[in-house]
Amino acid sequence: MTALPSLLDRCEAQNLRLTGQRRTVAQVLDASDDHPDVETIHARAMARDPNISVATVYRTVKLFEESGLLERREFGDGRARYEDAERDHHDHLIDLQTGEVIEFVDPEIEALQERIARRLGYDLKGHRLELFGIRRQHGG
Rank of each mutant, 00 (worst) to 15 (best):
D30E: 04
E71A: 10
H42N: 12
R48N: 14
S67H: 09
A55K: 12
R79I: 00
N15K: 08
D37V: 04
R44A: 15
H92Y: 00
L96K: 14
M46G: 15
G99M: 06
T60N: 07
I94R: 12
D30Y: 03
L8G: 02
S53D: 05
T60M: 02
D9P: 00
L4A: 15
R10E: 01
D34L: 09
I52H: 02
A45W: 01
T2A: 13
R23N: 09
V57Y: 08
A13M: 11
R44H: 14
E65D: 07
A43F: 11
T98V: 01
H92S: 00
A55H: 09
T98C: 03
V54K: 15
S67D: 11
E86Y: 13
H92Q: 01
D84I: 00
L18W: 05
E86M: 14
S32L: 07
A80K: 05
E103R: 13
D34H: 14
A3V: 10
I41W: 01
R17D: 12
E83A: 12
R44P: 01
T2M: 11
Y58Q: 15
V101L: 02
H90F: 09
L93V: 10
R81V: 03
R73A: 04
L7K: 01
E103S: 13
L69Y: 08
A31R: 14
P50F: 01
D84E: 01
A31W: 10
D33K: 15
D88I: 08
E71T: 13
E39P: 01
L63W: 03
D37E: 10
C11D: 05
